[in-house]
């Protein structure tokens, strides 16, 4: 009998606490978030950005206490999805996850809007870029690349996707003066640039760290620099461009945007949830396994970073679009 009462008590307490939590939840309901949050990924499902988002999703849902709906809006090099996010209601329930590509689209005027048309919530997750050459290439570092034209009497052929991030990254490391400039050719994104490097059609190309990894490990291509501020953990022997005396730091930096005019408290709540999700050990490991870095930078610092990078990109655009 006592046992039963005890059980009953326990049950009552359990039920009551559930009720309290629920009631408390609805009491808190005038604070954000009180309904599922849409996150627009302006790239196709299954692509690099989509994988990043879906890896983070469960952790972020937990720390937000709300579910997340990932919406893939591919098209026009991420401009289509970004435009949709820009036009959404500024209530904190539409978030845009985009990376450096949005900035290059703005610099090259493919996007008819600016990062200033958004509120920047935070920077989180970073995928490094590397500079690769074919195996047996005479180029072993950025100095060799700069000296290539004088030494070999012809410009090094640089495979890029014209107007895209790998073009800008190449513009940062390759000399632009006439005596040593590289010749840009269109290869396309990572897969096509890898094929062109393997087939020795080009002398140098820019790849994302994780996509380059298997070909580096098998010795089919060679790295001459990484473009991150610090050395990439899985390429510990590859010097950064900065270490080689070349002022170049560019990667696929994910930025979390909201439409302009979202209430500061709302942004703070989202940023805080994102920060605690990103700090979760198993998420850090999951991201590292996929070659990314789970960095986190709050809104104000992110804005400064974005402004600085945007300025650099505009300068490079003037040299590479000549």
């Amino acid at each position: 009998m006592i046992n039963i009462t005890k059980h009953f008590k326990k049950t009552v307490i359990a039920v009551a606490s559930v009720l309290v939590v629920t009631v408390a939840g609805s009491a808190f309901a005038d604070t954000y978030p009180k309904k599922p949050i849409k996150i627009i990924v302006p790239f196709g499902a299954g692509g690099g950005s989509d994988i990043v988002m879906r890896t983070i999703q469960p952790y972020l849902e937990k720390s937000l206490g709300e579910s997340i709906v990932v919406i893939n809006v591919p098209g026009s090099g991420s401009v289509a999805g970004s435009r949709r996010a820009k036009g959404a209601k500024a209530d904190g329930y539409t978030v845009l996850l985009n990376h450096t590509t949005l900035l290059t689209a703005m610099v090259t005027k493919k996007a008819d809007f600016s990062y200033k048309d958004f509120d920047i919530v935070a920077n989180a997750v970073y995928m490094p870029l590397v500079v690769a050459v074919p195996k047996n290439s005479p180029i072993n570092n950025l100095q060799d690349l700069a000296a290539f034209k004088k030494k070999h009497g012809k410009a090094a052929i640089a495979g890029v996707n014209l107007g895209a991030i790998n073009h800008f990254a190449m513009g940062m490391i390759a000399p632009s003066d006439k005596e040593s400039a590289v010749r840009y050719v269109q290869t396309g994104g990572g897969a096509k640039t890898m094929a062109a490097l393997l087939g020795k059609h080009i002398d140098v190309g820019i790849l994302a760290g994780p996509e380059a990894k298997p070909l580096i490990e098998s010795g089919d291509i060679k790295l001459i620099a990484s473009l991150s501020d610090q050395r990439i953990p899985y390429f510990p022997n590859t010097l950064t461009a900065l270490e080689q005396g070349v002022e170049a730091s560019i990667g696929i930096q994910y930025t979390w945007y909201m439409p302009k005019g979202v209430d500061q408290d709302t942004k703070d709540i989202f940023a805080k949830a994102l920060s605690s999700a990103i700090g979760n050990d198993s998420l850090v490991k999951a991201l590292t396994d996929r070659g990314s870095v789970s960095n986190y930078l709050p809104g104000k610092e992110s804005l400064l970073r974005v402004e600085k990078l945007f300025g650099q990109l505009e300068i490079i655009n003037n040299t590479i679009s000549k």
């Binding site: 196709g44 499902a45 299954g46 897969a191 890898m194 094929a195 994780p210 298997p214 089919d220 996929r290």
Partner: peptide, 22 residues
Amino acid sequence: LGIPGSVVDALLLGGLVIHGLQ
């Protein structure tokens, strides 16, 4: 080579990477 030959293969590559296979 790890180079996707089509859009579907890029998705398959994504699926493999998730499972730690590169």
